[in-house]
Computed example of a mutant assay.
Amino acid sequence: MTETDAGLARRLATLAGRLLLQLRDNEDTNAKALGDEGDRAANRLILDALRRARPDDAVLSEEEAADPARLAARRIWIIDPLDGTREYGERRDDWAVHVGLAIDGVAAEGAVSLPAMNACFCTAAPPSLLAENRPLRMLISRTRPAPEALAVARALGAELVPMGSAGAKAMAVLRGDADIYLHSGGQYEWDNCAPAAVAIAAGLHASRIDGSPLVYNRADPLLPDLLICHKARAAEILALVAGNA
């Protein structure tokens, strides 16, 4: 039987994660060199496998020069082979592998692997959502907390939860470890395609912070802001963001 797109995404995210763990455990080098090697190795594994499994699909990866021909494609795999390179190099747990598929500009299928946590989340079988925490928990960047996120957290009385990669943050909402991921500090399509696909499949809200939809496979892959939260909370958060604009 032909492998589904979701199954392929999960398999490749898992395989790349295993490779990254092996490299991290066997490589005795500094954080930057380890991160660079991890990016290269995971990217090579995923792209080689995609060329074999989906030769007619376009690909956009953080680690490859973008091919302008992709803009005419309906189906494009959007890859971040190592999201959270700094965290990986520092041998932390909050890094991820993103394998996403956008169809007609929409994040349709994908998987986010959290290798150091022995977890992989996929659009085909997302976990059931848990109730929001009390007090609410707001995810923020470890190094560059977004002003909008801090303002919304104050308004909601939410606890701040610093964390590394975008994928790790998005999956923390899925897991129930946090409730709101609001980012405005700049991202690219590979940072949020797979996380958004998985979040939406699980029944979460995912959009730009002005409420507009996330659109993929654009000429400029910059997709600078993102909100992932429970659907019932989205209108309140979007109104708070607009009020602080």
Rank of each mutant, 00 (worst) to 15 (best):
M1D: 12
T4W: 11
A6M: 10
A9G: 15
R11W: 05
R11L: 13
R18L: 13
R18S: 13
N26M: 10
E27I: 06
N30Q: 11
N30C: 11
A31M: 12
K32M: 14
L34R: 09
G35F: 01
D39I: 06
D39F: 05
A49K: 00
D57M: 09
D57L: 07
A58W: 00
E62Q: 07
A69S: 14
A69T: 08
R75W: 00
P81W: 01
P81M: 04
T85A: 03
E87H: 02
R92I: 04
D93M: 02
W95P: 00
V97M: 01
H98G: 02
V99Y: 02
G100R: 00
A102Q: 01
D104C: 07
G110T: 06
V112E: 00
S113Q: 06
P115I: 11
N118L: 12
A119T: 03
C120L: 12
C122W: 02
R134W: 10
T143V: 14
A146E: 12
A146F: 08
A146L: 07
P147F: 12
V152D: 09
A153I: 10
E159H: 06
V161W: 08
P162E: 15
S165H: 04
A168S: 14
K169M: 15
A172P: 04
V173I: 15
R175F: 01
G176I: 13
Y188M: 14
E189P: 05
W190V: 09
N192Y: 03
A194P: 02
A196T: 06
H205D: 04
H205C: 03
I209M: 15
L214K: 05
R218M: 14
D220Y: 06
L222D: 13
K231P: 06
A232D: 13
R233Y: 04
A234P: 03
E236I: 04
V241P: 01
A242F: 05
N244S: 15
